[in-house]
């Protein structure tokens, strides 16, 4: 059974059609990057995966069942900003999931249990390269380190699906490359199923196993909202040539111009 199954999915806000006739299957262990112009429903799609928005028509299935209509521990998330909790130190941020699970009322654990959680958290932080920053608050960390922390925090919960919402959009190019390597490494080692939203086409082209391009096939410049975006390309990563990248770039750019105008 596919991990994620999308059956004739539509999302409309009143008159505006954001997404239309989405159909796809994603197997466990796939790494899907979602690219497209702003306004093409990438974020809306992510919100439906999270459960903060629900489809207008069609179905979005996780392991054969409709995806829960509120966020829960089956889907982990790393946002571009505000992903980690500013009032907790790095190691506390990572321990949080375990504390919440073992203490429904206090949300805190003590003694031996706490030591065990702390050990796990330290291990996880070491695997994302943050073993030197255990006791630091997020504001003392650089942007790249904060995103490493956010990854560690999400992964310790072992989510069924990991959602990444432009996680590296605010980072410097060099640091972004390091983060790509880190994400690929974690994905391989932990058998994750990943959806990553990005507006960087090149990023989508070499990261992961599969790239989706969200774009409007039909576009009325006077009323851009009358037709929704679809998955116009569904490409296995690594098998595409330069020509494809160029034609995708052109098509996405022209949509972006219309939507941005």
């Amino acid at each position: 059974m596919a991990a994620i199954e999308i059956k004739n999915l539509w999302k409309e806000y009143g008159q505006d059609v954001v997404l239309e006739r989405l159909n796809a299957k994603v197997e466990e262990g796939e790494f899907v990057t979602v690219v497209g112009a702003s306004g093409c429903g990438k974020t809306t799609f992510l919100k439906m995966m999270l459960g903060t928005e629900s489809p207008t028509r069609g179905q979005l299935l996780l392991d054969g069942k409709p995806i829960p209509d509120e966020p829960d521990e089956t889907r982990g998330i790393v946002f571009q900003r505000y992903s980690v909790l500013p009032h907790l130190t790095a190691v506390e941020n990572v321990m949080l999931a375990g504390e919440l699970e073992s203490s429904r009322w206090l949300g805190r654990v003590f003694g031996g249990k706490r030591r065990a959680l702390r050990e796990q958290a330290e291990e996880m932080l070491a695997s994302v390269g943050l073993d030197q920053a255990l006791g630091k608050y997020p504001h003392e960390l650089s942007g790249g380190m904060q995103q490493r922390l956010a990854l560690a925090q999400a992964l310790i919960k072992k989510p069924r699906i990991l959602l990444l919402d432009e996680p590296f959009g605010a980072l410097d190019p060099g640091i972004r490359r390091d983060m790509h390597e880190l994400v690929l490494d974690l994905w391989r080692k932990q058998d994750l199923t990943v959806f990553m939203i990005t507006h960087d086409l090149a990023e989508g082209f070499f990261l992961g196993t599969r790239m989706w391009v969200f774009d409007k096939e039909r576009l009325d410049p006077q009323t851009p909202g009358s037709y929704g975006a679809r998955i116009t390309y569904d490409l296995p990563v690594g098998n595409s040539d330069k020509g494809t990248l160029q034609s995708i770039t052109q098509s996405v750019d022209s949509t972006a111009r219309v939507l941005g105008a």
């Binding site: 829960d72 521990e73 998330i77 505000y82 980690v84 919440l100 999400a154 919960k157």
Partner: peptide, 11 residues
């Protein structure tokens, strides 16, 4: 984002 994050951590 933080409220969603907490929910994905099981809160």
């Amino acid at each position: 984002e933080q409220i969603i994050k907490m929910q994905t951590l099981g809160a």
